[in-house]
Amino acid sequence: MLAKRIQPMASQAKRLYVELMFQVMGRALQAVSEVDGEVQKEAQVLPEGFLFEMMVMPEGAKLIVEHIGGGRFHYHGDSAPRAVNVSIQFKHLTHAFMVLSFQEKTSIAFAHDRMLVDGDVSYAVRMTRVLNRLESFILPKIIAKRAVKEYPDNLHLPEKLISAAQIYLKVATHFIQTARA
């Protein structure tokens, strides 16, 4: 009886968590593309105006970023100005929650068919590398190890701390700007 009452609340909590994480990740993708040369190098290969989406099927939370040139991303929130080029789609809210709460690595989620890629797979692979790089920066090592296939052994603490501080500052600033607007 109690479980039945709790279930909708748990589902709602999952939904809110995934929405919040997408908002943080979207802003963090924009931020990391402004501070990290490696991410810029990865993103530069993408066409200018390239739109990348992560979403929960069928009509759940989503994040959309655009490559605006020079390896920089712009976060569009949950609405795309035009059709997206590559979409990574979680089959269910639970699968998105498992990945975004670091219970399942992104690479494992792909291997477990939790997600679909719609669009050019090579760009999706590239965006996955960008996401891995971002997670390695912004998450404590112990949690990042649960999120990425392999934590980069050349990412040392000073670089990680400085980059993470810059990214979090930019994310916070973006949140405030959005709230004011």
């Binding site: 690479s107 792909f110 090579s122 760009y123 999706a124 692979v125 590239r126 590398r129 990425v148 392999e150």
Partner: peptide
């Protein structure tokens, strides 16, 4: 090779 879809399933990064 780094942009090939199959690299996602390689057990090692």
């Amino acid at each position: 090779a780094l942009d090939d879809g199959s690299i996602m399933f390689n057990p090692k990064e």
